[in-house]
Design a protein around this nucleic acid. Structure first.
Lengths: 252, 252
DNA sequence: CGGGTTTTTGAGACGGTTCAAGCGGTGTGG
DNA sequence: CCACACCGCTTGAACCGTCTCAAAAACCCG
């Protein structure tokens, strides 16, 4: 499908910023090279100097860092339409790694192309800046969770966040979505161990809050899970006028 | 002293971005209203809609949020020259609060003024965007610490970070600085309790790593403390060519 | 000097870790 | 097509870092 990267990007930006047709037109002319990457591969590594940004088109990706003792902390997960390394536009040397959790389709745009687009269309520049700010808002939310919530709450919060973000791009109708993460990966994001994550998930399942089979995740009792996770989607900063429920994937 | 807000801001931006004289000139003409706020006061509160940004000129401030059970998590600390709520330029409703830790001098600039400066001088826009990205890089660092490091390491890391950031604005020569935080406030930033922070600090003191009296903090063994905290200042993204050691406070 | 906050200390409890082992599905090669 | 190896999930039990509760000591400010 032609232009899928541009479409994913425009769809995402439309969720949070006000673009006009000229902006969308300019975005759809961005030169983007598409490549598939295998599960578990680093797309960009810590310490690397980069001259392009990645747009996630399809699949599941995450960002992470290791401690001296080799423990891994996952810093973020990404859904299609996200530009996980947009910060590299100003900070050229990566201070963490960006990897494909599952086999993923990635679009690559040169910094140059983004720069000239930003200069030509301040509106787009504003949308991209906003995008990096929302990234930061999500970090703040994780900090509060890691610092002050229990393992159970953190887990609930993450499951709600992913549901909400996937739903915003049409990938989680009714809070049912594909979550291709091992419990180990969840643990590394939550600051927990596999053992604890396993027990928490079982507890949730037992209480009828969710249902899981392979990579299928279904949240059966959203209000309860959201309460446990102290989840309120405000920090994702979707535009007030977007109707999440109605948004289906763009037909193709 | 006239223009102190502009000077603090320019000094800070010069640390991370390349500005030319026209940029500095434009920045120094920003209309900034100065106000002093008492210790413990909220400068901007969660949920509030804002139309201006704050520049910390003098004092110590932090950002925080509360959990449902009333636990506080401090999300960030700020040093003079910082614009703690620069994100409000695009995200008008605060998703956390910004408060004065001690009596502080704050400059207020309207969003409008910043917007027109950004449009007129893309260089300044880039510097401000970068500023918000560094904010995000610090969040990532905190996430790794909270998720995967021990209380001891986190404490060491925070003390190193503050030393480095204060030093960059001339407020911590030789790793000696004024740290007007109670152990309770440190605990709320580190995701620990006062009791634990107290014990960790005593341990550090006993091992000769630091010296503390009132609000005076002196790091006596930087390499050792940095090692414990896994601290490497790269994530603060100072320009490669700034010589931290030489930088004295701008004469006034 | 007196009242409030901050720091310090002790002891017991708990959330989450660590270690260790068994289970189940899945893909691969003989 | 079965055997084997591998990876992810599950379970149990001991252990430990950090919390909680509680109270005393030190400090600060008016």
């Amino acid at each position: 499908m032609a232009n899928e990267a541009q479409k994913a990007l425009i769809r995402r930006l439309d969720l949070v910023a006000k673009l006009d047709n000229d902006d969308r037109e300019a975005l759809s002319r961005l030169p983007i090279a598409i490549r598939e990457v295998g599960a578990g591969t680093d797309i960009v590594s810590e310490g690397q100097r980069v001259t392009q940004c990645c747009i996630l088109i399809d699949g599941f990706t995450h960002r992470y860092r290791h401690t001296f003792e080799g423990k891994r902390q996952i810093i973020a997960f990404h859904v299609p339409g996200d530009i996980p390394d947009l910060h590299s536009l100003h900070i050229n040397v990566m201070d963490h790694s960006f990897a494909a959790t599952t086999r993923s389709k990635i679009g690559f745009v040169s910094h140059e192309a983004i720069w000239s687009l930003c200069l030509a269309r301040p509106n787009v520049a504003a949308a991209l800046w906003l995008e990096t700010l929302i990234d930061g808002a999500i970090f703040r939310e994780w900090i509060v969770g890691l610092g002050r919530l229990s393992g159970k709450s953190r887990t609930a919060h993450l499951l709600c966040e992913l549901a909400m973000r996937l739903r915003s791009v049409g990938l989680a109708p009714d809070h049912v979505y594909c979550l291709p993460l091992t419990q180990h990966e969840l643990a590394d994001a939550l600051g927990l161990t596999v053992v604890t994550v396993n027990r928490v998930l079982q507890e949730f399942k037992l209480e009828g809050l969710l249902d899981r089979d392979r990579s299928r995740m279904a949240i059966k009792n959203w209000p309860a899970l959201a309460r446990i996770g102290e989840f309120d989607s405000d920090y994702l900063h979707f535009r007030a006028d977007v109707d999440m429920k109605a948004s289906p994937p763009t037909a193709h």
